[in-house]
Design a protein around this nucleic acid. Sequence first.
DNA 1: GTCTATAGCTCGATAGAC
DNA 2: GTCTATCGAGCTATAGAC
Lengths: 178, 178
Amino acid sequence: MAVFYRQGFARTTLADIAAETGVPLGNFYYYFRTKEALGLAVIEHYRTWLRSRFQSWEESNSDPLRRLDLFIEMTIEDADRLAASGCPIGSLVQELAKEDGTLGAAASDLFSVILTFLEGQFSALGRADHAADLALSLLAIVQGASLITNAFHQPTIQSRVGQQAKRWIRTQVDSATL
Amino acid sequence: MAVFYRQGFARTTLADIAAETGVPLGNFYYYFRTKEALGLAVIEHYRTWLRSRFQSWEESNSDPLRRLDLFIEMTIEDADRLAASGCPIGSLVQELAKEDGTLGAAASDLFSVILTFLEGQFSALGRADHAADLALSLLAIVQGASLITNAFHQPTIQSRVGQQAKRWIRTQVDSATL
DNA sequence: GTCTATAGCTCGATAGAC
DNA sequence: GTCTATCGAGCTATAGAC
């Protein structure tokens, strides 16, 4: 996962992973039939990681607005990694979306998991009418921020855009409360 | 440019370009010393294209708010291409940002060109205080939208997020006018 | 300047000893 | 199950005829 994240999927060779893990090259093909299968396993890991993250937020926090803040703050706390290699999920989606097939669909499905969570929070905040649009916009701004953060290798960008996103959410929620 | 855009830089071979253009493989190395030099030429083309686009908007339209709308509408009109292959500039930046060196820096510089234009419009709208942050946020939301649009291959996503972005701009500008 | 052929290398995947 | 050696395909880049 670490090597795929740092270098991207296509640019990472099995020899790279073998060197970093100490696992001999041939062993991978005992557990994974192809490099694509290895990629699918990584995507599956991200999926379960996302689900457990969201579940823990929903259990430990009853305020939907606070949960949306946690989502944004997570990316701000990760800003150093984002500046170095971008969002691990976003760059996976971007790289694999262009090639059709199983891998691209599996990666894109990670966005569905995120969108479902965000939509739930906006609905709970009284914006069930446009929850889907608001979720799309929030995911877009966070993903775009991490792309720019990575492009300029400047962690502060993620934080600056993140603060704007928090303010934007409040304008959307306040207009519903009125 | 078309093949790089559809397939990405790394995944595109010179044989692909030769097949699509009818230019024999060896000829490329008469005009470009390496594949990287060919990539730099493509980036340079995008840069001049961006500059002429922005200049034409500034000449034909005196309202900065209208110019920001034009920027968003451009991505909406391009939604079909975005759904198929993502933003040509954004995917270039994403792919090349991870590898250091000339190519990544040149690609990221395209974002600087866009940000400078957006910043100018926000400043003209009376938000000189936070023009840089607003420009970052607008670029982020448009780039993120195109990533999601591409991930799900659904052109409508770009339009839905674009409308949200237009509304967001107005809330930022109105608060300055008050 | 244009084109063909191919060198030199790297990668994913496999064979087969242990 | 673990590991080494290597095959075959495909890539960038070059050599050299025209």
